[in-house]
Design a protein around this nucleic acid. Structure first.
Lengths: 339, 339
DNA sequence: CTGAAAGCGCTTACAG
DNA sequence: CTGAAAGCGCTTACAG
């Protein structure tokens, strides 16, 4: 199984390798019949360009990096599946990197990653996409990047494409659902302070309460950090308030699971004594008992979009692309009307 | 920020690029003082070899592939984290591929993947590592591969390293724990028929029952496919048996969660009416309520080992390496002594 | 123990 | 619209 090279294709199509290169790279200025001949030869020989040679000769490595900092496994799995699928269709490779957004050498680490891996672009996920210092560094270096769920637009300026959800609206609507179900006292577990999406979710909650003429009560609001364990202590605080809330909104599913956990440990029934609502629609939300009401985020599709837009951007950088993805309320059994 | 090349290092160290190459690749036959000079120059310039150039010139792409077929998100996340960490230390890149082990073109897909991605080796996870046709194909092509949890040794012959758990023993011990807790009637949800590890787990269950003089009863054994939904129907079958079992062993955590779900839906209490035990120790097992008793598999470390051994194998292929990883019984609240 | 030359398979200017 | 030449940054034989 000898490797097929550009020379083989050129020979069969009776053109120069430069013409083959043009066709492969979809460059203009190739006569239609010539293009056909080359494509046919490539197909016939089952030719695939050598990525290493492309990377060495050109400036595009045909490699993009997905960087993350301690996400939930299913968030990462879904997102990377989406990115991977789009990469494969486009002839790109994907590499993964875990970065620590708390470390002071984050920028240096990122530079090292870019140099060592030779990626042509980066997809940043929260909380990395929230890190303005990092994003501005990429912008300043003119390095292609796509941002997943970064801070709200207008607050700062990005160059690359942005993939986001209307987090505020999603939580606004879900909170309204609880209010319409008769709940007047609704607790809230905040997201990690450095995740802007978490902040937007909190705003949606406050907006819904205000619109309904309900007060925002600090006693039943607690800081969470997206981890199950942080959800445990946050819930303990909230459920010790007097009067106790009848519903609890958590900024993500893991903490909502912790809320259900804590409630059950205290002898409360879900949803009879406490309605619990999460965010993300991870598999977990369906696996626990009772099945959890939550906001569905189309994470895999967000991966598709992020990769697609980043690859387009690498080929021709058009600034300011913004994609807002749809959400969906998944009403399941962990929430119920107040009797 | 001009890129540092091998020429820069050679110039600073006052040697030829070939000598730099030797040092970088840890080849023998370099005088110690020369080696020092080169290393110092590389350090001083912060030199990193260009992977694309290496891949083009040599036969090693410094890239390994992790291939999977529909694993649970947390299994994949943990394994890939381990692989990634080891890759980074060794200067390798990791690429991910999802393959469908049911499709008839699996072999062709794998070949295409190898050619396109130019990986120098592959790590196969179940059920791909169970696919003898695929493994034999790699062996025949002399292509480096590491196998995670493949069929028991002796059944066939691999060339590459093998990373496994003593699944039989793990389930044997966990079943013994249930027996010692007084359970006489213990149900079992089998794993996917094509996962040999699942088969070994079933054997461990049978062995423990036999050793205790208990009968293996088909009425309380059901086929599962590792998915939550398959666990739902398996549990329904098992819990409709008469007399009903007092304990239930599931081949993985997702199905064990489904078992708890079904039991709770039927109004049974866990663990009072039914002890439930899983396998894997995914985060899920800790997040549901009550927290689940399960067998801990050191998945991340298995990733480390798989990558480490594969990379060693790429550099010098020594056949028949086998690593058995330790397991651990995690006794939590979903199981209790029979009163 | 060390080095000079050739070549891996592409793309980048440049020419026509 | 098409092509010949140079070069990307390494490793592979080969020589000494």
């Amino acid at each position: 199984m000898r490797k097929i090279t550009i020379d083989d294709v050129a020979a069969l199509a009776e053109v120069s390798i430069k013409t083959v290169s043009r066709v492969i790279n979809r460059e203009p200025n190739v006569r239609k019949t010539t293009r056909q001949k080359v494509l046919e030869a490539a197909r016939q020989l089952d030719y695939w360009p050598n990525v290493a040679a492309r990377g060495l000769a050109g400036k595009n490595s045909y490699l993009i990096g997905l960087v993350y900092d301690n996400p939930s496994p299913s968030y990462l799995a879904n997102l990377q599946t989406g990115v991977l699928e789009t990469c494969r269709e486009s002839g790109y490779g994907m590499v993964l990197y875990s970065l620590d957004s708390q470390k002071s050498n984050l920028i240096a680490q990122t530079d090292e990653l870019i140099i060592q891996s030779r990626v042509s672009g980066l997809i940043l996920t929260p909380p990395l996409s929230d890190n303005m210092e990092l994003v501005q560094h990429l912008v300043a270096q003119n390095f292609a990047h796509a941002l997943v769920s970064p801070p709200a637009f207008g607050e700062t300026k990005f160059d690359g494409p942005v993939i986001m959800l209307d987090d505020r609206l999603a939580v606004f609507e879900m909170t309204n659902y609880l209010i319409k179900a008769g709940h007047r006292r609704i607790g809230f577990i905040k997201g990690h302070p450095q995740h802007s999406a978490g902040l937007r979710r909190f705003i949606g909650y406050c907006d819904a309460l205000n619109a309904a003429g309900l007060a925002v009560d600090d006693q039943i609001i607690a800081q969470g950090y997206y981890s199950f364990d942080s959800g445990l202590s946050a819930t303990q605080k909230i459920l010790s308030a007097n009067p106790r809330p009848t519903a609890l909104f958590s900024t993500n599913d893991d903490m909502a699971a912790a809320a259900m956990h804590t409630a059950l440990d205290m002898g409360l029934k879900v949803p009879d004594d406490l309605s619990v609502v999460g965010f993300d629609d991870t598999p977990l939300s369906r696996y626990i008992w009772p099945p959890m009401t939550t906001v569905r985020q189309p994470i895999r599709d967000m991966g598709h979009k992020a990769a697609e837009k980043l690859i387009t951007y690498i080929h021709e950088p058009k600034k300011g692309q913004q994609i807002v993805m749809p959400f969906e309320l998944k009403i399941r059994s962990s929430s119920a009307p107040l009797i």
